[in-house]
Design a binder for these strands. Structure first.
Lengths: 201, 201, 201, 201
DNA sequence: TATGAATGAGGATTCATTCAT
DNA sequence: CATGAATGAATCCTCATTCAT
């Protein structure tokens, strides 16, 4: 279940990362203090620096992990999907939407704190984001080529698709009439509508 | 002493609001200091407090203004549009997208700093946001009723529509192949696709 | 009596500089905290930063002032001295030694904390130091040329002279048998001995 | 467990002392962290405490060793010198100056960090320093008694002598026109001039 | 020996805010 | 209106030191 990006992470380190994720989500990068994060992780302020070199690094760790998880979730869904672009796009977006709904903190941080990544760290995260976008881009393009999708603007549609899904949590509140699963399915449906699929699953 | 929502704004106050908008967009609410804002506004730190009672209030002022402008832009477009839901939705989204593209800072702040509004101030901004959402909701509903739109999920589609448009700037970079106008039109097109309009303008 | 280096210095700023001088002398640059300096200056920690941009700048201010005072003291003494190199060197060293004895803190800081000057600030202080050395160098050279001084190594002697005098306080403790005035005179005498003056005043 | 002054020193302990010497010289006692010293010594932070009880003790160890070496160097030179005060003083100062030139770090630390010795440790180092001063004092006094030296202020001259030599490195930069040996000889010459020796070797 | 993990205190600096002028 | 001076609290981060392994 854990998706280790690289190297072992001790229980304390894991707690620090989890606390940072939550704190950045609630208060933003600049609004969350290392003291708060340490407190939530159940350790001392100074000990945080035995695991992390700087607050900046804490942000990358959180963002790197989140972006890798998103990519992995979508890749897995696509691999398990059928052969048609319709099936693949539907699976991809449903998986992505599900991730978004189940990892609200990760998405809040990804969407709002990305801009505070210091220069040296940004490239790495951008790369993973781009890989995710490319997965979707490729499916949409293939669908247009095969005649499954009729959209005249495949690239922009692909971008809009992911943007839309990554911001579900802006308006979706759990506990309402719809379950997360239903919302995810519905987003897959919207995706197909957006690319003007012949068959709206 | 009162702070009228539509009252007179002196040149200094205007400069402060503009500087705050820019600073909040670049560095976020917690990352932008009053000192920085004062500096960019060309005045002294202490003088900011002659116009604003607190940093919190500065944030509401910026967000209130932005949300009112967005609402006004869409309302004007709808008023000038034709009678069909198709025409109205297209006009609404194109106008909204145009605003988004021409007011990147306003949207960055609206999208990312809204959560830092202190309780007393939040309701006011929420109200304006809801009004905007309702305008679009009503059009979509009318379209479904009239048979122009075939979407089975009008409410979610309406929400997704605005979410998608409000985040254009996440991926759209000016200076590329497309002009802002073209991107705005394309988004209006996407909106119609999303609600499964019979006629995609 | 005050020797303003440039610009007005308010009473608070003066207190901060005086406190910094004393603190750096007692505990060294790294051992003296801004908090301590602020406390001794009778103000708050944060207020120090209304007068000084950084601790580094505090160090330069102290060192700049000290070096300028030393140069001024020696220049004045030389200007008031007779025409012979003997008289001029004697006056210069006596004045310098007197300054050293009356400004122990300034010399401790000059001698021991100079190395912590950050690069951007160093040049300025070095220049003043060099000017002082040059004043003495010129006198010694003139004395050798006129036949008043017999030393075969005028340049090294000149350097050793000032080094010796600037470190008087390493071993001289006030309150002993000798007064500061006597010690200063004695050092002028040593200076003449060192350059092998024909007449040891 | 005991810390013998002349006991065995393991290779690690030696590395720690060498690193401390260098670090104190470059950054001063308060500016050099144990972490830095450990790193330079090629060991871990915690392991330093297997060899040293505190940072204070590290400073004494460095200063004790440096003062003992200085004393030993001068004592050896005096023992090997001729019978006259002139010969003995010349040898003593040349040996001392040579030590100074060859052990810049030791002298920087001795000259600038001595004041940070905690009370319990200071006496020991002072004793060795005094012993060195006494060696020179005795020679100068003997020279005055024998008529070799004409200085009217033997004690102050003796103190100034050592002060001057211990600060050679303040202005002497290796790689210039003079070799260290020449500079050392020259300082011996200056010493004789200072005490007004009849014969300036 | 040697080390990674842990901590309380303190480092320089900036924060939002106030007040006298 | 406008500002410089002032401050208590908080910022990130490093300190010397300890301890379990």
């Amino acid at each position: 279940m854990a998706i280790p990006s690289a190297g072992q992470t001790s229980v304390t380190e894991e707690a620090i990362l989890a606390a940072a994720l939550q704190a950045f989500s609630e208060r933003g990068f600049h609004g969350a203090s290392i003291r708060l994060i340490a407190g939530r992780a159940g350790t001392s302020l100074a000990n945080v620096y035995n695991y992390v070199q700087s607050k900046d690094e804490l942000l990358v760790s959180v963002l790197r992990r989140a972006s890798q998880q998103q990519l992995a979730a979508v890749q897995a869904a696509v691999a398990a999907a059928g052969d048609t672009a319709t099936s693949r796009l539907s699976s991809a977006i449903e998986a992505y939407a599900r991730y978004v709904l189940e990892h609200r903190d990760e998405l809040v941080v990804s969407n709002t704190e990305f801009r505070y990544l210091s220069d040296g760290y940004r490239a790495e995260v951008v790369e993973t984001r781009d890989a995710l976008q490319t997965v979707v881009d490729d499916i949409v393009e293939a669908g247009v080529r095969s005649g499954e999708f009729a959209t005249p603007y495949p690239m922009d549609a692909s971008r809009s698709l992911l943007t839309m899904a990554s911001n579900i949590t802006v308006w979706f509140r759990p506990g309402g009439a719809l379950s997360a699963t239903e919302v995810a399915r519905r987003h897959a449906y919207f995706a197909l509508a957006l690319v003007e699929a012949r068959q709206l699953r």
